[in-house]
C-alpha cells in the first residue's frame, strides 16, 4: 500500500467518526437524539472551544506548564533510574537487599501517592513532577538494570582482552549497553512523564491541561472536557514524534527489524 492511500484511509477514519458524532448528536433518529449534547457535546462546539483557547492564548500557559512538568519528571526520573540501576547491577548484594522493597513500591498504583505529594510539595508543579518521577524512575531503572546485567559475555571479555580497565569497561561497554536499553523504552517513559503530570494536575492544581479538563468537568462543560482531551492527544503525539527523531539519532547502531542480516 502506498503512503498516500494509507494516509487517506487514516484520515477517512477520523472524518467518518467526526461526521457520525456530529450527525448523531444533532439529528434525531426515530425522534430521539442518540448522543444527547449534554453528555456528548458535538464536534463543532468542541472545535470552537479549541479555537477559542488558541485565539485568546490561554491554552499556551497550560500547555507550557504541563510540558515543563513532564520534562522535569522525565529528566529527574531518568537520572535517578540510571544511577540506581547501575548501582544495583554492579552491586548484587544491594540489589538483593532492596529487591522486595523495589517490587513493593513498583506494585503500588501511583495515583494514591498524589495526595501525599500534594501535601508535601503543595499544589504547584513539584507535586506533579514527583508523581511523574515515580512512574518514569521504575521504567528506566528496570531497563538500565537489565541492560548492565545482560551485557554480552563475549563483548565484555573482548574489552578485557583489549586491555580495558574497569573504568574503561564502564565507559565503553556497560554504559552504552545500559543507555541503549534506556533509549529503547524512551517512548514509554516519556509517555508516563506526561501521564504523571496530567493526572497530578487533574487531582489538584491551578494550571495545566489536567487542570483545564478538571475545571470544565466541574461545570459540566462537556465540550471543554473533549477539547482538553483533543489538545492533550495532539500534545502527546507531537512529543512522541520528537522522541522518535531523537531515537533515530541515538540508536543508529542498532539493527532494525527491516535489515535483520545475520
Amino acid at each position: 500500500m502506498s503512503r498516500l492511500t494509507l494516509l487517506s484511509l487514516q484520515l477517512l477514519v477520523a472524518v467518518v467518526a467526526i461526521v457520525l458524532w456530529q450527525v448523531l448528536s444533532t439529528v434525531p433518529v426515530f425522534g430521539k437524539i442518540l448522543l444527547p449534547p449534554f453528555f456528548f457535546s458535538n464536534p463543532v462546539d468542541v472545535f470552537s472551544q479549541i479555537v477559542k483557547w488558541f485565539a485568546s492564548g490561554v491554552i499556551w500557559k497550560h500547555l507550557w506548564i504541563t510540558l515543563w512538568e513532564s520534562i522535569l519528571a522525565f529528566v529527574i526520573g531518568s537520572l535517578g533510574g540510571v544511577l540506581v540501576g547501575f548501582w544495583f547491577a554492579r552491586q548484587p548484594l544491594v540489589a538483593a537487599v532492596f529487591d522486595p522493597y523495589v517490587k513493593m513500591v513498583n506494585a503500588l498504583p501511583r495515583v494514591v501517592l498524589a495526595p501525599i505529594f500534594a501535601l508535601w510539595l503543595g499544589l504547584g508543579i513539584w507535586s506533579k513532577v514527583a508523581l511523574g518521577v515515580t512512574l518514569v524512575f521504575f521504567i528506566v531503572f528496570f531497563n538500565v538494570y537489565q541492560g548492565v546485567k545482560e551485557v554480552s559475555r563475549t563483548v565484555l571479555d573482548n574489552g578485557r582482552m583489549l586491555g580495558m580497565s574497569e573504568q574503561q569497561l564502564m565507559r565503553h561497554v556497560y554504559w552504552p549497553s545500559a543507555l541503549s536499553w534506556m533509549f529503547s523504552s524512551l517512548h514509554t517513559s516519556v509517555g508516563f512523564a506526561v501521564v504523571g503530570a496530567v493526572v497530578g494536575e487533574y487531582l489538584g492544581s491551578a494550571a495545566g491541561l489536567g487542570y483545564l479538563i478538571q475545571q470544565a468537568e466541574g461545570v459540566f462543560d462537556v465540550a471543554g472536557v473533549f477539547a482538553g482531551m483533543f489538545v492533550l492527544s495532539a500534545f502527546v503525539l507531537l512529543i512522541d514524534m520528537g522522541v522518535t527523531m531523537v531515537e533515530r539519532r541515538l540508536l543508529v547502531w542498532r539493527p532494525t527489524a527491516a535489515d535483520g542480516r545475520g
Binding site: S152, T154, V155, D157, N158, G159, M161, L162, G163, M164, S165, Q168, H172, V173, P176, S177, S180, W253, R254
Partner: peptide, 28 residues
C-alpha cells in the same frame, strides 16, 4: 597482556562504527 584474542562469537562493540571498533584498542 601480551595476547590478542579473536573470539568465535561476535565480539565487536555494536554501538561503535568499524573504525571506532578498531581504534579503541589504541585509545584505551
Amino acid at each position: 597482556r601480551d595476547a590478542g584474542y579473536l573470539f568465535q562469537a561476535d565480539a565487536l562493540f555494536p554501538w561503535k562504527t568499524a573504525i571506532d571498533n578498531v581504534a579503541i584498542g589504541l585509545e584505551i
